[in-house]
């Protein structure tokens, strides 16, 4: 059993005009086996939360804490967090020219597992993982994310999720840019991962359509840098029907 515990987290982004406060007191615990959905308007700070957990250098935590199984995550480097079992499927995966998917995946899996997988077994594992996500095996030879469509990038993120098997997965708008078929394939990939590992999952999304495939245990409304409402799966339907207004206007009223 693992637990990612976020307590009263405040964070800033470094901008050209100086630091800007974005997270204003996020408190959230994600336990193994549970899936949390976070929904909230554009610019409310959802991706910032994801990046801060992963350790992106552009963000500075000004107060609060993040621990994984009691260990201080904020004291870890980006790669240490990954090796400790945190994974972020990014909203905008980064293109890395000249680095093949196959080479990258093997290097990442070697880092995650602490030893290089045997070449023969590895090729089989990679091919099966690709087939599961209905990715053509030719993607292995392509440069990492370079020239990938939005949907292809998201598939590759979930492919990595399945191979790296983290304790806690954060999926930042993995559903955006996917057509209906791709959404199903990717959601099945996430579900296979959840069932196989019993990991905790934080799903950031704008839409309930992914929640039809991946049922959340808890739904949070995120607004202006913090969680303003928490409920069960039914909260997502209310948000879909009524929008965020009633949660976001509270502050300005």
């Amino acid at each position: 059993m693992s637990a990612l515990v976020i307590t009263d987290l405040h964070a800033q982004v470094q901008t050209d005009t100086g630091p800007k406060d974005i997270l204003r007191g996020v408190t959230l615990t994600i336990d193994s086996g549970l899936t949390h959905a976070i929904m909230g308007p554009n610019g409310s700070g959802k991706s910032t939360l994801a990046y801060v957990i992963a350790g992106h250098p552009r963000y500075t935590v000004t107060s609060g804490s993040i621990t994984l199984d009691g260990v201080d995550v904020l004291a870890m480097s980006v790669d240490e967090r990954a090796r400790a079992g945190l994974f972020l499927a990014m909203q905008y995966p980064v293109e890395v020219p000249g680095v093949s998917v196959a080479n990258f995946l093997r290097t990442a899996v070697t880092a995650a597992r602490g030893e290089a997988p045997k070449l023969r077994l590895w090729i089989k594992e990679m091919k099966e993982a690709m087939a599961d996500l209905q990715m053509d095996s030719s993607f292995a030879e392509r440069n990492l994310n370079e020239g990938f469509s939005g949907g292809e990038k998201k598939r590759l993120e979930i492919l990595q999720l399945g191979l790296l098997r983290p304790k806690i997965a954060i999926l930042d708008e993995t559903d955006s840019g996917l057509d209906v078929d791709a959404l199903r394939v990717v959601s099945e990939g996430v579900n296979r991962f959840r069932e196989a590992t019993g990991a905790g999952t934080l799903l950031i999304t704008h839409y309930t359509r992914i929640l039809r495939y991946i049922t959340p245990d808890v739904v949070h409304v995120f607004s202006d840098g913090r969680i303003v409402e928490t409920g069960g799966p039914e909260l997502a339907d209310i948000l879909e029907a009524d929008g965020y207004e009633r949660f976001t206007t509270v502050k300005t009223a």
Binding site: P57, V78, V96, V99, F104, A111
Partner: peptide, 29 residues
């Protein structure tokens, strides 16, 4: 490119490994 290094590190690669991969990639084409 800091974003490239962050992406690779977020997959568990050390900063050195990430840099080496990026430099190799730079020369690959």
């Amino acid at each position: 490119d800091d974003e490239q290094l962050f992406y690779l590190q977020s997959r568990g690669l050390s900063l050195d490994e990430a840099r080496q991969l990026v430099v190799r990639g730079f020369f690959a084409d």
